[in-house]
């Protein structure tokens, strides 16, 4: 290969390496509804506060791009809550997000609280009249062109999914139907997962919405199993717009999950030097080889497979070591 070709390839790899690694602009609206009891208020507010803190500290979301509407202005720490979560305030907040966001931006809407109703009339209980799922759908339509994800973590939230489903839009609900009316735990696990490294399933430093959803769903399942309780909340996700949710997106027949996998909630900064970019590209290629090897695992005996896997993983580890050494020389790791 000529030197010119090599330079061109490295440049190409650099472009490839940066794609998806840099953080897309994100906007966040969190709505916490009526709690009814102190314990629920604590749970809802903790989830909302964790979301906002994580968005600010790990996802680089500017304070102006994150809105929390709560059952009362005193729900969060000083200044955290932007207003009371009335129907009008929610509509205005979505309108504000529509105006301040640009095409391609990620807009994440999170509803936390107690749900009620059925079908298009499903609701989240908020101070004053409760907006229906159909109304949320109309408001989300204002965000056309953005990469929209709405998470309804409330009880009885399942019927929101078919109402809000749209091509390119991610809809997550904590329950699979309006009949699952018990208080949910999905948001507690979801916020724990995103606030720690636990939800980053492949530990690549890029937490996707799909990873966060999968983590929370598994954690809910595990918590119920550990307590020997019957599972009364079955989270689901739709992102192919067909209005039919998928619970376990890892099964081969799952039709949902592809859009959520491309929504990166938190990512490392893009590389600053061509050497690092090249190493990253090599590492990514090796990771692809690991994936290819995994797919052909049944062709190997256990020992040969482990040896082949180790060879690739050691090569990856060595690239990582080199990257960190370069970054250290350049003035500190990201």
């Amino acid at each position: 290969m000529s030197a010119r070709c090599m330079v061109a390839l490295v440049a190409l790899l650099f472009v490839g390496a940066t794609h998806g690694a840099a953080q897309d602009a994100m906007h966040l609206l969190v709505v916490t509804g009526l709690s009814g009891e102190r314990s629920f208020a604590t749970s809802f507010n903790t989830s909302a506060s964790t979301l906002l803190t994580t968005a600010r500290t790990r996802w680089d979301v500017a304070p102006t791009q994150a809105i929390w509407l709560a059952e009362s202005i005193e729900a969060g720490d000083s200044g955290e809550v932007r207003g009371v979560a009335t129907r009008e305030a929610i509509a205005a907040a979505v309108d504000s997000l529509a105006r301040q966001s640009a095409e391609g931006d990620i807009v994440l809407v999170v509803l936390i609280g107690h749900g009620s109703g059925e079908g298009a009339e499903s609701r989240l209980s908020v101070p004053g009249p409760d907006p229906t799922a159909a109304e949320y759908g109309r408001w989300l339509d204002l965000l056309a062109g953005r990469r929209v994800a709405i998470i309804n973590g409330a009880s009885a939230s399942g019927d929101f999914l078919p109402v809000l489903a749209a091509p390119g839009r991610v809809v997550i609900t904590a329950t699979r139907s309006a009949t699952e009316r018990n208080a949910t735990t999905f948001m507690t696990h979801f916020t724990h997962g995103i606030a720690s490294d636990e939800a980053d399933a492949n530990r690549d430093g890029q937490l996707t919405l799909l990873e966060a959803y999968d983590y929370a769903r598994r954690a809910v399942d595990e918590a119920y199993t550990a307590d020997s309780r019957l599972l009364t909340e079955h989270a689901q996700l739709d992102d192919d717009g067909d209005g039919k949710g998928t619970s376990d997106t890892s099964v081969p027949e799952a039709s949902d999950g592809r859009v959520a996998a491309r929504i990166v909630l938190g990512a490392r900064a893009a590389p600053v030097s061509p050497q690092v970019a090249a190493l990253l590209a090599e590492r990514r290629a090796l990771e692809g080889e690991v994936e290819a090897l995994r797919r052909t695992r049944d062709r190997y005996d256990a020992e040969s497979y482990a040896d082949a896997l180790e060879t690739l993983l050691v090569a990856i580890a060595e690239r990582t070591q080199a990257i960190r050494a370069l970054e250290a020389r350049a003035g500190g790791a990201p």
Binding site: R283, T320, Q321
Partner: peptide, 14 residues
Amino acid sequence: LEAAPAYERAQALL
């Protein structure tokens, strides 16, 4: 690392 090849801490230990 088979599940998470980019996991740096595990890489270092490997």
